[in-house]
Amino acid sequence: MMIDVSNLSKSYAGNNAVKDVSFQVEKGEIVGLLGPNGAGKSTTMRILACFIPASSGTASVAGLDVFTQADEVRRRIGYMPENNPLHPDMRVREYLKFRARLKGLGRSRSRERVDAVITQCGLEDESKRIIGHLSKGYRQRVGLADALVHEPELIILDEPTIGLDPSQIRSVRQLIKELGRRHTVLLSSHILPEVEMTCNRVLIMCEGRILAADTPENLQKALGQNGHLIAEIAAPLEELKTCWEQMPELAHYTLSAAEGEYHRCALTPSGSEDLRPKIFALVLERGWKLRELSRVRHSLEEVYIRLTLPESEEETF
């Protein structure tokens, strides 16, 4: 067990940022903390990184308590805070060397490790440049390199791709995936596709609580249904309506006009049966025209929005 958090709470000036949170992370997992801004993700990570103490509850990293054995815990984690603060006046290699020495690596070992992380994070061409002059993407890599330099067992990344452009996001994501082979990674994000793509497991947090914790696939399944079907059919509107109403397997349908004579039907099946062959047969039988028939899976986004939004707001999405 890499991380064991139980009944963790943290309040700032009477405001509860984290409320009674419990979760576990196994060795070698990449776990994503997902939630809207202000959900308590950063606070949870700061507690795990021994920067601030919890108000109540316990948290341990590799079996060591983050409050009483903070020094030992800090040796085992690589932490990259939100917005990735760096010293803008230092050069990349100089900064990484400084960090490595600060983390207790010996002279030759730190040289070795700095070279290794510079290669790993693709910073070879930038190693002599001043950090303040680097682009945001490269700065992010410097932050990652810093988190990795002492070969920590656990890497904690707070919003690692915030403010990057799409291609930079892709490369940072790739880097994180590679890290997952050798380290345990806990990352936070409020961007869904990111977590969906990089993580083995997702913890959805909102208002200081964990609302759901599972693999992205299981979370999708947890919605209970197989998603809905989209069919674009050219047929008389009334006929189409009565047809859907009479179909017992359908729980719900909506119709909207599409280009030309077609109607776009969004069909929600009540069971788990795949209705596509049936619909196709129906169209053939009636002699209608069909130009699209597809199944839309619930994306994690829907799971997320359902979980994090209050009931009343949900309808608008």
């Binding site: 990184a49 021994c50 920067f51 932490y79 805070p81 603060p85």
Partner: peptide, 14 residues
């Protein structure tokens, strides 16, 4: 102010 205090205090220094 710049936030480097957080990276500093999460290294094993007293």
């Amino acid at each position: 102010f710049s936030g480097t205090f957080e990276t500093l205090m999460t290294t094993p220094v007293s």
